[in-house]
Every structure is written in structure tokens, then in C-alpha cells.
């Protein structure tokens, strides 16, 4: 899969929550080729920060040639992107990696925290299959995702840690109920490792397929630095999160004991 190395003009970069931003970029080459689950590796030109940061592609508009990124300020890199203004150029390498494999059956999308970003793009791709969506977060404010997903989802279930919206508890506590009440075949998930691990175990128990989107520290994003590798649980071979993933069948990533 061809990767592009381009400058993307920032069209929108707005705060949507305390430390969460929505960035719209003019990036026609990326928009043309991106698949749900892929990411871009970005950098501000002449930045004091040396390395790029991987961000999942949240939305794509092929006609307009735009992509959007929804990101949280978690360090120096993302803080710098948040301070960029409309009209500035962001250096982009992408689209990178293998996205979600689109399966035949009824989809259930499970996301936690900022892991939801690439799942927005996935929901769009899956819309004809009437996907169910389960999204969890700390509180009502943090669960702003339905507004990006509602046009694609058949139904959206929300969980919050404090019960301020939807089910009180974690997504994985609510997941079995969804699987018992609905005909679901394939689970697609992205979020904290601990959440995805639990989702994978529940998926296995209920006999559903499960794909997980991984996140790991990486320097290059193109398969050369080997910062993000792990051992495939099925084949025993070394895999790179950046170019072999970031999406993998759950069985390749997690233990099930």
C-alpha cells in the first residue's frame, strides 16, 4: 500500500472538549487511499519535537480531499498540534498500516476514550450493515462521540464510569448484554489495551470474531525502527504495530487464560 509524504493545510483546528481537538486537513492523496483503521504520522515543520506522532484517521471526504483527526492533548506533540492555526501546514506521512478487515456479518463497534477516533471512519464504511456501537468514557462530557457516529449507527449504547450518561460502569460490563439481546457477528474495537483484552475474551466466549486496533510507541511509522513490535500469539512471528497492524485479529495479540 503506497504511503504519501505531503503537507496538509489545516482547515479547522477547534477545541471540542477541555483537551480534545478536531482537526480538518486538506490532504487529497491521503483521503483517496485511506481505509478505516489506518493512521497518519504527523509533525509540525521545524518543530522542537523530533518525532512524528501517530493519529488514527477519524473521517475522510474523498470529494473534498479532506481528512479529519480527533486527538487529545497528552504530551508535547499533541499540545503543539492544538496550538496550530488554520492555514498552517502539517507534515503528514500516510495512510499507514492495515485497517480493519470488513467482515460479512452484523458489526458491533466497541470504543473507549480516544480509541473512538478511527472507529468513526469505520462506522461510515459499515453503515449499510447497520452497525451497533458501544462507547464508553469517564462521564457524559467525555462521551461526545455519538454526534460523529449517529448518522452511521443503527444504535449507540453509552456507558460512563460515573453513570452521568447511559449505563454506569465500563463498556466491557455492558458488552455481554448487547451480545445477548442482539444478533451480532463481528466485533471491531479500539481503546485502552486492558479494555480491548476484555472485549476479546468476551467475544471469544460468545463465538464472535474480534479485531483490535493497537497503539504502541513508534519512531518511524514505516516498519524500520522496530520500536512497536510484538510476538504474534498464533504464529510466534514478530509483528510491527505500524505496518503489519495497527489492526490485528484479537487472537494474534492477546492471551485468553
Amino acid at each position: 500500500m503506497k504511503k504519501f509524504f505531503i503537507e496538509g493545510c489545516i482547515l479547522i483546528n477547534e477545541k471540542i472538549l477541555d483537551d480534545v481537538y478536531y482537526m480538518l486537513l486538506q490532504a487529497p492523496e491521503i483521503a483517496d487511499h485511506a481505509e478505516p483503521g489506518q493512521f497518519v504520522h504527523v509533525k509540525k515543520n521545524n518543530s522542537i519535537n523530533f518525532l512524528r506522532r501517530p493519529l488514527g484517521i477519524a473521517e475522510v471526504d474523498k470529494k473534498k480531499g479532506t481528512i479529519s483527526l480527533i486527538y487529545r492533548i497528552i504530551g508535547r506533540g499533541t499540545a503543539e498540534y492544538a496550538a496550530m492555526t488554520v492555514g498552517e501546514q502539517l507534515s503528514i506521512v500516510g495512510p499507514i498500516g492495515n485497517g480493519f478487515m470488513i467482515k460479512e456479518g452484523r458489526p458491533l463497534i466497541v470504543g473507549g476514550g480516544m480509541g473512538m477516533a478511527p472507529l468513526v471512519f469505520l462506522a461510515e464504511r459499515l453503515q449499510e450493515k447497520k452497525p451497533l456501537v458501544l462507547v464508553g468514557g469517564k462521564n457524559e462530557q467525555e462521551v461526545f462521540w455519538p454526534k460523529y457516529m449517529e448518522k452511521y449507527a443503527d444504535k449507540i449504547y453509552v456507558t460512563t464510569d460515573d453513570g452521568s450518561l447511559g449505563f454506569k460502569g465500563f463498556t466491557v460490563q455492558f458488552l455481554p448484554k448487547i451480545l445477548e439481546d442482539n444478533a451480532v457477528d463481528d466485533i471491531y474495537t479500539c481503546g485502552p489495551d486492558i479494555m480491548m483484552h476484555s472485549v476479546a475474551k468476551i467475544a471469544k466466549k460468545y463465538g464472535k470474531s474480534c479485531q483490535v486496533s493497537m497503539e504502541k510507541r513508534m519512531a518511524c511509522g514505516i516498519g524500520v525502527c522496530l520500536g512497536c513490535t510484538f510476538t504474534d500469539k498464533i504464529t510466534g512471528k514478530r509483528r510491527k504495530v505500524c505496518v503489519d497492524g495497527p489492526v490485528f485479529p484479537a487472537e494474534e495479540v492477546f492471551d485468553y487464560e
Partner: peptide, 9 residues
């Protein structure tokens, strides 16, 4: 295995 540092890694 990777950490960014001032002007490097």
C-alpha cells in the same frame, strides 16, 4: 523501546 528527548530520541 522508544523515547523522544530534546532534539533527539
Amino acid at each position: 523501546r522508544i523515547a523522544e528527548t530534546p532534539a533527539g530520541m
